[in-house]
Design a protein around this nucleic acid. Sequence first.
DNA 1: AAGGTGTGCAACCGCGCATTC
DNA 2: AGAATGCGCGGTTGCACACCT
Length: 303
Amino acid sequence: MGRVPCCEKVGLKKGPWTPDEDKKLLDYVRKYGHGNWRSVPAKAGLERCGKSCRLRWINYLKPGIKRGNFTAEEDRTIIQLHALLGNRWSIIAAHLPQRTDNEIKNYWNTNIKKRLIRMGLDPITHKTIKQNTFEPFGGGHDQSKDTINICHVAQWEGARLEAEARGSKLQVGSGSSQLSGLILSKIPTQPCLSSHSVSTEHNTAYNMYALVLATTHDFRSSMSTLSIPTLPVVSNIPQMKNTESILSYKGDNNVMGASSQIKKLMEGCLSNLQDDDIMVAVEAFRTARSESIEELFNEPTST
DNA sequence: AAGGTGTGCAACCGCGCATTC
DNA sequence: AGAATGCGCGGTTGCACACCT
């Protein structure tokens, strides 16, 4: 059975909202609150889908929304959080309280992404593009390069999942601001397979940051954020001798297979997470200062 | 001036998750 | 337990405007 549409779409208006519609929605929500969004259009006298009303309210009408140019500080926060979280716009937006996820997403796609590309950085991994070449499999590529890339992706994914987990926690968090030794750590460029020789380029250019949650202040590992005692499963990734065993690399070419495994195994760790971790990390991140990000902001924004 | 192209952004769509019944 | 429902998210689309030729 297919999914039932969120509302009866026949006869409903689509497209840009008029000032009159805005006023109706604004007046209604101010008076009664939105309650069940599906019922809002009828009650507010709008010929719109409830979903459309919700979107309009969240992205435009809700009080306290800041519009207009992003500040350099906001830019930094977005870039840093994106490096950690990927396209988790809602979580990123949670750290820019007056901005909406939609606005941040648009800003990323139309502005920051292009600037990163122009600088030769991959907007997804934030690595230099030339070292991030996932060539089509079976296309006469260098296997050792692929292996290294896989290791990097696995490291990256692990780090990202940790951060993401904290983001999720934050979203539903209770607001406690007690710190638990959260630090920011730079993941080194250490090759995962010692038998392979790795170019200096790989070693110097691969700067990946991750949030590290340590339950004690005894940070035994300065080598990798993924070697955290409280996250044993994740910590295994960089040391894996046989990456294919977890990545299903040749089987389905899907590195995300590792992510889902890690994700599942990490679930048990989430209960230890503290609120506000992300914000603390962002502050730490700002202090740590990624060279490439600094470079980005030294570059003129207009061409 | 007119047509083509690029850009930015608001809004839509479909999916997945959570909640309710 | 499972279907129905609602919400939120991320990806995508389409329109309006700016700029170029």
